[in-house]
Each structure stands twice: as structure tokens, then as C-alpha cells.
């Protein structure tokens, strides 16, 4: 939901309990990891419980710029953090050519929807990736050019196909080679 020119917003919701955040990305994007300079706010009254038929007027959100230092630290500690358990390999197209600027994602849920639990940094020109995991376990692995949002024409997308359900079982402390992960352009 976008605010209007005065910063007001209205969200129609089913009854339930919600956690509200407000974000404005400097690049105008709708999803993805926040970058230094983006504006971010957690609503101070979280969680917010809405009952059926109720209209709530909330206090203001206080937006603050994402600080570069804090951002770098969170990146190092967050889903990009280096750990002892990892999957690595190479993202390639159907002609086996390396594909750059592709994220590799790990999900706990076989449907591979919502937020991944881990993700790689984007691949470079060599297509190589390292996906650091917080622990051993069963993960479902996918790759795409964008972080979140619906798939758009021109994006690369693919899955780990060593198993039919894209599953990888990795032991704690292991460094497993997934080989090549083939992506295709979606048009």
C-alpha cells in the first residue's frame, strides 16, 4: 500500500493480528533487501490487532534512513552471513554458460513461497555461488534474478533439480557441491 502525497494510508484487512512496517526504497523498488539511504520504520504499536468491522486510526510512523554501517553489519550477521555449513555451485543457462546477477535461495517449505531462510549474494560473471546455511537440514533450493515479487519477463529463474522436489539434505558443517543449477529466462 502506497501513501498519498500527505503520507496518509488506508489498508483494508481481514480481522487478525498484524505487524506493520513502512519502507521507501531510494531506487523506487517494491521488494528486496533495504540499502543504505532507504527509509524504514517499524510501527511502534506492533503487533496491531484488528477486529471485524473495526476502523483503527494509528499513530504516525517515524521513518529513519538505513545507516550504511548498521546495514553492513546486519548483512554480515544476517542471511548473507558466512557460516560453516554451505552449498556451492554454479548458475548456468541451458547452454552451460555462466549466468550473473542471480540469487540462490534456500527454503524450508517445499512450496518455495514467501521469504527464503537463506540467500546467496548475486552471482558474478562466472556464475559461481556460495549459499551459507545456519544449520544442517533439509532445504529446497531455487534461483532467480530478483529478490521477491512476481516473476517478471526477462528474469532468470530455476531450481536445483538433483531431486525432483528441489530438495537438498545437508549435514551441519558440510560444504556440499550442488554442481550446476540451470536457469532459464522467463518471457
Amino acid at each position: 500500500m502506497q501513501t498519498d502525497k500527505e503520507g496518509h494510508f488506508t489498508i483494508n484487512l481481514p480481522a487478525g493480528r498484524y505487524s506493520l512496517v513502512a519502507r521507501k526504497r531510494a531506487d523506487g523498488g517494491r521488494s528486496g533487501v533495504l540499502a543504505p539511504g532507504d527509509l524504514n520504520a517499524q510501527f511502534s504499536g506492533n503487533p496491531v490487532t484488528v477486529r471485524s468491522g473495526e476502523r483503527m486510526v494509528l499513530d504516525d510512523f517515524s521513518l529513519a534512513q538505513v545507516d550504511a554501517g548498521v546495514h553492513a553489519q546486519r548483512q554480515a550477521e544476517g542471511i548473507f552471513a558466512r557460516t560453516e555449513t554451505l552449498l556451492h555451485g554454479q548458475v548456468v543457462d541451458s547452454d552451460s554458460a555462466p549466468v550473473s546477477d542471480v540469487y540462490v535461495f534456500a527454503y524450508l517449505d517445499s512450496r518455495m513461497v514467501g521469504k527464503p531462510v537463506h540467500m546467496s549474494v548475486p552471482t558474478g560473471a562466472d556464475g559461481l555461488f556460495s549459499l551459507y546455511l545456519s544449520d544442517g537440514g533439509t532445504y529446497y533450493i531455487g534461483a532467480r534474478s530478483a529478490f521477491g515479487g512476481p516473476l517478471e519477463p526477462g528474469e532468470w529463474v530455476g531450481t536445483f533439480d538433483g531431486e525432483a522436489d528441489h530438495k537438498v539434505i545437508v549435514a551441519r558443517g558440510a560444504s556440499d557441491d550442488l554442481g550446476t543449477l540451470i536457469v532459464k529466462e522467463f518471457w
Binding site: R111, P150, L151, V157, F186
Partner: peptide, 13 residues
């Protein structure tokens, strides 16, 4: 449909 994962090739909003 949008209920499907992007990895299943869904591209519509």
C-alpha cells in the same frame, strides 16, 4: 495463478 511460487513459473500479479 499467483498462489504458485515464482520457481513454478508464475509471472502474473
Amino acid at each position: 495463478t499467483s498462489a504458485k511460487s515464482a520457481f513454478a513459473g508464475q509471472g502474473m500479479r
